[in-house]
Amino acid sequence: MSATDLSASPSAPARSRTVVASLRLLRSELRIIAGRRRNQAGILVLASVPVLIAVALKFSQPREGRGPDFISSATSNGIFVSLTALSIEIALFLPLAVAALAGDTIAGEANIGTLRYLLTVPVDRTRLLAVKFVSLVLGACFGVLVVAVTGVIVGGALFGLGPTTLLSGSQIGLADALARLALAVLYLSAGLAGLAAIGLFISTLTEQPIGAMIAITVVSTAMWILDGIPQLEWLQPWLLVHYWTAFSDAFRDPIFYEQMRQGLLVALGYVVVFVSLAWARFTQKDITS
């Protein structure tokens, strides 16, 4: 045992107590998020998109050669309903969901005044911020998962879940397809974690949760717009949303990791920068609400 181990050992029980206590706070946080009517309604909206897609495809005439790849493939396999829904919702609905939750984290608590009582319990500001960020990422992950799972269930019910023909032409079994879908869900959650970090920072700047939510939505939408302007090609590799659509690379054969790797690095960069900014801001802030 080295000298550093010795000096660290007295604080080890205290640290484990902090971890246990933080998990208790996280559970309370998740319960509040899950119990809120607005969030429950939001989950229903997220889940309704794959349902609408599947129903629309089932009852419309097949039209060859139109729409994105997924949509034409969807009638052949239910998995593609999930992918189609994800590619549609990642543009607005999922970022909007993250924005709504992020607005609640600090700005929302400040708005109703509960922030001052949390801090005087006391909850260390760094610990509170960490718990809020983790709950935000879990919330985003849950949103993506709901879209994917609803897509599989509804798509499977209407179109079946047989062997999946990949975009590159080869066929894979159902287990393989579900594993690849799980990869896509995790990848999108990581991307949304980058947005969650931006949201957390914006939430520390204001006491108006709606204002924070609008600002976060504006940021993500602005990034999509910039990503669509060809003249800004030099900027696009730095945009968080630029790599989000790469989740479909999980359905190539073999899986094409290059874009997703880039996307993860950029998302990680956004998390580091904006969580640090949020921390710097929040730990220095006068709580006057």
Binding site: T18, A21, L25, S28, I32, Y117, L118, V121, P122, V123
Partner: peptide, 8 residues
């Protein structure tokens, strides 16, 4: 209960 959960 929420405040108590926050108290480590």
């Amino acid at each position: 209960a929420r405040l108590d959960a926050a108290d480590r």
